[in-house]
Design a protein around this nucleic acid. Structure first.
Lengths: 237, 237
DNA sequence: CGACGCTTTGAGGAGATTCAAGACACGTGG
DNA sequence: CCACGTGTCTTGAATCTCCTCAAAGCGTCG
């Protein structure tokens, strides 16, 4: 809410530290220059607030600059499933492109700051800037690839799921320049379980078992990976 | 193999009966005209043959004209998961766009005839035809939406999964002009179970239970839906 | 400090898997 | 056309993993 902290050097796509992850990845300099003019920056949501709701008109593509969020889908009977967790530099909004209505609800897990490419801008790109549009196609297909990986997990044991979850978060944080071995899980056990298709009690038990085996150290939401190799073997085997 | 049955009127995108499902859906007449020039038609694969392999270079986007196929992913430990079944009019190949290497293997479940938009053509579209490219983005996002639905299913009982599977196939066949209540399942119980995350024995038991409840009639691969409403309620509740 | 939500831990039970055996269907060759 | 063999499908029984329900512990925030 308080935007009194305006910096002298404004952050744009051209000097954003997330340029290797966000839309600019793979984009030429001219297109990045155009992109920065199209993007609306410094949108804020507090913990628990929605970025968009399922059923609402396509809001465009958003990119997290800081904070984390969850993407959830709801079926006819009201069951909620967490489709994805979003880390800084990751894009959301693709669930609204096909039908022009959002299929999922995006909710901040902590205060988030995000950039916004409005649906109108996205439409304009169709004719104006094939370069950026190609990037969107690529990113959308990345999300598809990601879901394929998730399907491969669904047949595995609770142990394998939790191990994969921890390793996946670790990899993504590493790519963002954060510590890959020690970090804070912004989501609840309930959320983790929901995402993995197990109960929060099972998450708790597995996490405790991993701690006993000295694969990890966990206290509340703070996690430290002690033996990445062994943790990986739980997932792999 | 025998293409001796060449028709006098050749089928193109402009007069294909699948135009309401395939790439042309939502495309203007001029773009369809261009599309037909880019597409390579009448590619054939026999049952069990691959259309493309995981790890191979991106082959482009393909559209089934007849026959069915399965799309499968393999993890590090060699576990295979069937990501999707493909019906006539459905597109495949998106698993190769993000990395330019196919993430999945596509295999014919029976003789298939498909159209092919080569990777080179797909790349050309980036600069030449933003209209077709936009359609690809939309289709890619549809696949994403589809995976979200699948995630919602993963927490459900074996009954709900099988009911949803039958109803989903039924819907898609209906959209293609086939009977929605009576059809042949081209995939094995093993394949169905793999796709749904249950064993083939469980598929068999559930299918038998549905038959006892008079929701369906099934003999080998031939399926008849007797009570769609009740079947839907198994899925919904 | 107290209340609330989140997390942990335990015991019992349900659903799905595994293993095993038999039935059936399909294609091949006699 | 029928016999045969192979692979698919069905069915059963025992087992196991994970879930459900319940209660207690911990942390956090007003």
């Amino acid at each position: 809410m308080t935007s009194a902290l305006a910096k002298t050097t404004e952050v744009t796509c051209e000097n954003c530290h997330l340029d290797k992850l966000c839309i600019p990845k793979g984009l030429n300099r001219a297109d990045i220059g155009e992109l920065k003019l199209l993007v609306n920056r410094n949108n804020i949501r507090q913990k628990g607030e929605a970025i968009y709701h399922a059923g609402s008109p396509f809001r465009g593509i958003m990119a997290l600059r800081s904070g984390t969020a969850k993407l959830l889908a709801i079926d006819g009977a009201g069951n909620q499933t967490i489709v994805d967790f979003l880390l800084p530099g990751e894009l959301l909004g693709f669930d609204g492109i096909a039908t022009q209505l959002h299929n999922c609800t995006a909710i901040a897990l902590e205060t988030v700051n995000f950039c916004h490419l409005s649906s109108q801008r996205v439409d304009e790109l169709t004719t104006h800037n094939p370069g950026i549009q190609q990037i969107l196609l690529q990113r959308s297909c990345e999300q598809f690839d990601d879901k394929v990986q998730k399907m491969l997990l669904s047949r595995r044991t609770a142990e394998a799921k939790v191990a994969a979850f921890i390793l996946h978060i670790s990899e993504r944080l590493k790519a963002r320049g954060y510590s890959e071995l020690e970090f804070r899980l912004s989501m609840s056990r309930e959320d983790i379980g929901n995402h993995l298709g197990i109960t929060h009690e099972t998450v708790s038990r597995v996490v405790h078992a991993f701690q006993s085996l000295e694969l990890i150290e966990i206290k509340a939401k703070q996690l430290k990976i002690r033996d990445k190799k062994k943790l990986f073997s739980v997932y792999e085997e």
